[in-house]
């Protein structure tokens, strides 16, 4: 095989794996949008908040220690030494469930029947609250997140591929981060579990009913509010997974919440209501972005086009297929 082809394959593989991360975040969006019609802008901050909380629990930080210290001149920092990451993850999941419950109680309950734009704005407000509270609770310094997922380049793959290049060419094997492989495995597992759950359980059926028609679901005795708490908690869980992956790679800091912006083109590509759309859309955007960075970005000699290229891709796609990847043809009625 020629070096170009090998490089191309490497780029596509890396694109697919970063695409999985986008899919994961987009999945959180889609779940909430399907079940409650809310475009949850706070999804990215969910991931940040979950990651912050996880680090906080793991290292035994005292919540709000900065605030308390400043107010009362005390010097709290940690109240216990590090705990096992599984326990910390468990505690974080609990936190996300409580958070979902609080959001339903304090926000969603009062905004039923409002215009979608109002709900959207409310989630922007929510994003600010969570960001602020997260910082107040755990501090805004960059934190290292390590729950024991291996990371770094895969030596095995490098050795396995180095011989594929044609004789005499300079090729040093493919580079793929093991962390990304793990992320892919976990994401695939999550999605499968989700599909099985919604297909074969009572709650799953209720979930699909609510997604289809709120009022019809209400009329057969499904509690909307329980379902909402459930999907928000689930999205919180997915956000946590995404937060762990991203946090492990580049540390836990504010920029983590910006992954939401990365996942938005996936949504317009795949549709706000389609789970397969979120997954395939994420993969497409991941691959497209990586290829563009190398083949177009290199051409233009300006670089860093990944900020907007995904949006551009999604837009061009929409111009030709306004209903998105998996949507039905839109027939407007009057």
């Amino acid at each position: 095989m020629s070096v170009e082809l090998l490089n191309f394959i490497e780029t596509v593989l890396n694109g697919l794996m970063s695409g999985i991360m986008y899919s994961l975040v987009a999945l959180g969006f889609v779940l909430i949008f399907k079940a409650s019609g809310v475009f949850n802008f706070a999804q990215g901050v969910f991931a940040l908040f979950a990651a912050l909380t996880l680090v906080g629990f793991q290292t035994g930080q005292v919540p709000f220690s900065h605030l308390i210290n400043e107010l009362f001149g005390t010097k709290f920092h940690h109240w216990y030494p590090e705990i096992h990451s599984f326990l910390a993850i468990f505690l974080t999941i609990l936190t996300m469930i409580v958070l979902a419950w609080i959001i339903e109680r304090l926000v969603l309950k009062h905004l039923v029947n409002q215009e979608p734009i109002i709900l959207f704005m409310a989630t922007i407000g929510l994003a600010f609250v969570l960001e602020g509270v997260g910082d107040l609770m755990w501090g805004s310094d960059v934190k290292v997140l390590d729950v024991g997922i291996p990371s770094g380049g895969s030596v095995w793959l490098e050795n396995a591929t180095i011989g594929l290049a044609s004789e005499g060419s300079e090729y040093y094997g493919m580079y793929i981060d093991v962390l990304n492989v793990w992320a892919t495995v976990i994401a695939v597992f999550l999605v499968t579990a989700l599909a099985i759950f919604s297909q074969y359980t009572k709650t799953g059926r209720a979930l699909r009913a609510v997604a289809d028609d709120h009022q019809a679901a209400l009329s057969v005795g499904i509690s909307l509010r329980t379902i909402w708490v459930f999907v928000w908690a689930m999205s919180g869980f997915i956000a946590m997974v995404a937060g762990i992956m991203w946090g492990t790679e580049s540390g836990v800091q504010f920029s983590l919440s910006l992954i939401a912006l990365k996942a938005l083109p996936v949504l317009i590509l795949g549709g706000f209501t389609s789970i397969p759309g979120a997954i395939i859309g994420g993969l497409l955007i991941g691959v497209g972005e990586k290829l563009a960075e190398i083949y177009i970005g290199g051409l233009l000699d300006i670089g860093a086009i990944e900020n907007w290229f995904a949006y551009f891709m999604a837009l061009v796609f929409l111009l030709f297929r306004p209903q998105g990847l998996f949507g039905d043809k839109i027939i407007e009625r009057v």
């Binding site: 926000v107 704005m121 407000g125 600010f128 609250v129 960001e131 602020g132 509270v133 910082d135 107040l136």
Partner: peptide, 12 residues
């Protein structure tokens, strides 16, 4: 941080 939180709260 407080400002951000209060911002968000006020909006909601």
């Amino acid at each position: 941080h407080f400002e951000i939180t209060i911002w968000g709260l006020l909006m909601v």
